[in-house]
Design a protein around this nucleic acid. Structure first.
Lengths: 227, 227
DNA sequence: TAAATATTTAACAAATCTGTAACATTACTC
DNA sequence: GAGTAATGTTACAGATTTGTTAAATATTTA
């Protein structure tokens, strides 16, 4: 069960060394030294982790990081930024764009390896699978389609995101605030009662003649996906 | 819904500064400068994140880290190690014992903050499923369900909170005032007799034909979960 | 045993919470 | 730019939960 690591690095000696060492550790390694190419390859291959150089000739690492973190399909892939600059501002910028970790060149390989292991361990349960099901409800994240009893169901964007989130841990109760945070994002200017309305709409959409209701209300606590 | 951060640090100036800054950022902060104490407090309080000094007079940070990571109940709490030593070996050792991140003193607070945010973002939706049992009574905090002898029991919000609290330390007797404080919160305008009523309701709910009563009245003292 | 003290419980009114329809606003599409 | 879809807000009815009271019951004390 070896992890797949994607390295984006334009300095050849570093790339070679990294690849060699990572493979020796048993990881599967892919790489690119071109930003644009890297971006599309990552989206295509969905590696388990990305090592991303800060400076690239065409498309900066930080941009790549931003793009990746905005893409629903790959945003959960952890990213370690590699940079020659040690300035604090850069570090903060790097982490704020969503990178999970940060190392300053020249870095020690053992330390990098330790950070990789630590990240992979932590991130695994978080990796979103392409398909998720709960009872007769199925969500296909690739095509963004939802089915109930094999029959396709059409949801609005918010309802889709809500279900996408709820189905990650069925039966778990989320407060309205949690749902706002995870489904709506940092956009805090939304009333928590709004969640109710979207829950109602989601309920109506996924409801099918003769089937159980799938969303549970927990009074004074929140909602969960459960019948 | 601010996160709870536990700081273990014996250097007072650093501790003060950290606490001040973290609280300013809206986090709830607890702390200890004693290793043994920290260990038990962390297990009891289950914070969302731990900042852990490498060197402590009694029990080293790395030991604490190891102990925490071996304990099923708290192993999912992310740990950031703080150390004065910058040596690579130490870093690696720190990460290998399971710490999620590592910072070398003197560290920049913005960078620490960025790392904290990054870790919390990644970790939060992943909170450990928490279960507590006492005899044939079980509470699942993830789904907020309560069972007695495998059979689900339905409680109102206050009854749930009451049981949730009592079951943390079965057999321990709490006064009405304590229960008001912990279960009702700062809302001090509630008669202490009200507790009686809720205890009664909780009793009725968790009572099952042919099973022992689970709540003990200690005359002129309070109540405990105990048969 | 009677009196004093403390707890249990039922009843009820007040407070709180939820579901949903209706409407206003914003974002998209052609 | 009109038309459509999606989203957010509000209001209100209905349901549930809560706190209080008072009477009934239990326990301790003198």
């Amino acid at each position: 069960m070896s992890a797949h690591i994607f390295v984006v690095e334009d300095e050849k000696p570093i790339l070679t060394l990294l690849t060699y060492n990572l493979e020796k550790e048993g990881y599967k390694v892919s790489s690119s030294s071109n930003g644009e190419e890297a971006l599309s390859l990552i989206k295509e291959k969905k590696p388990d982790l990305v090592l991303l150089d800060w400076m690239l000739p065409d498309l900066s690492g930080i941009k790549i990081c931003q793009y990746l973190k905005q893409d629903e399909k790959v945003k959960n892939i952890p990213i370690i930024m590699l940079t020659a600059k040690g300035e604090e501002e850069d570090k903060v910028k790097g982490l704020n764009t969503g990178a999970e970790d940060y190392m300053t060149k020249p870095f020690s390989f053992p330390e990098l390896l330790a950070r990789i292991k630590s990240l992979l361990k932590r991130v695994k349960p978080n990796i979103v699978s392409e398909e998720a099901t709960y009872l007769d409800l199925k969500i296909d994240r690739e095509s963004m389609k939802v089915f109930r009893k094999e029959k396709e169901i059409f949801l609005g964007p918010k309802e889709y995101k809500l279900l996408d989130f709820l189905i990650k841990q069925p039966k778990r109760v989320y407060s309205r605030e949690q749902l706002l945070e995870y489904v709506w994002g940092d956009d805090i200017n939304v009333e928590s009662r709004t969640v109710d309305v979207h829950i109602t709409r989601l309920r109506q959409s996924i409801n099918i003649e003769g089937a159980k209701p799938l969303i549970r209300t927990v009074r004074s606590a929140g909602y969960s996906l459960e019948n």
